[in-house]
């Protein structure tokens, strides 16, 4: 049921790369205009090691993805996404079933909250990851449902006022723009759905 890790990583890397300019444009509205470039650099580093990474068992492989992002992204999103992947690696068994994934995602999100000292509703990646995680946890989510939740959740960051991250410097002026981290999380979730869908 679980597609191979290489396909998943390549799909996530490809969507980040294809949307790098869009992510950077979103970040230039409310941040420091580097989110797309940074994420692309991080996933390029992951792809450069893809053979080594996917030769490992799933938990170690996810930790290696996280470590590459931490080392190569060069912005706050490095430790944040790095923590997400490293925590997933820490929580998941080598051959996870859906309930394992829902549980691991919940723990990984808690780790990201701690790393970023952020909470839901702060206009961050958490505002996409949180609702999607809740949907996974109820165990009945369809792929279409997950995709729709990710998209709607990213859009829901538009009217939010930023509380954490660079955008919080703008206060009220951060309202009206989609959070770049929320968008990159949405893109990754959609890419994973695409891969799973082709396999079903």
């Amino acid at each position: 049921m679980i597609p191979d890790l290489k396909t998943l990583i390549e799909a996530v890397a490809a969507t980040i790369s294809a949307h790098a300019e869009e992510l950077t444009a979103l970040d230039s509205a409310i941040g420091d205009a580097d989110h797309g470039l940074n994420m692309k650099r991080g996933f390029d580093a992951v792809l450069a090691e893809i053979g080594n990474i996917t030769a490992k068992p799933l938990p170690e492989a996810l930790r290696a993805v996280g470590m590459a992002l931490v080392m190569k992204v060069g912005g706050a999103s490095g430790p944040l996404y790095g923590t997400l992947f490293m925590s997933l690696g820490k929580e998941l068994p080598a051959d996870p079933a859906l309930p394992d994934m829902a549980k691991a995602l919940k723990s990984a999100i808690a780790a990201v909250k701690q790393r970023g000292k952020a909470d839901f509703g702060n206009k961050t990646m958490l505002d996409v990851l949180g609702p999607v995680s809740d949907l996974l946890a109820n165990g009945k989510a369809s792929l279409a449902g997950i995709r729709a939740k990710a998209k709607a959740s990213a859009e829901a960051t538009i009217p939010m006022k930023a509380i954490r991250g660079r955008a919080s410097f703008l206060g009220e002026r951060s309202i009206g723009h989609m959070d770049p981290g929320a968008r990159s999380s949405e893109l990754m979730i959609e890419a994973i759905c695409d891969v799973v869908e082709e396999r079903v």
Binding site: D32, D34, L37, N38, R41, V70, M71, K72, V73, G74, G75, G78, P79
Partner: peptide
């Protein structure tokens, strides 16, 4: 200072 490519940013390494 600077990201891993030398542009603006920071690097854990």
């Amino acid at each position: 200072g600077g990201n891993p490519d030398g542009g603006l940013g920071t690097s854990v390494e």
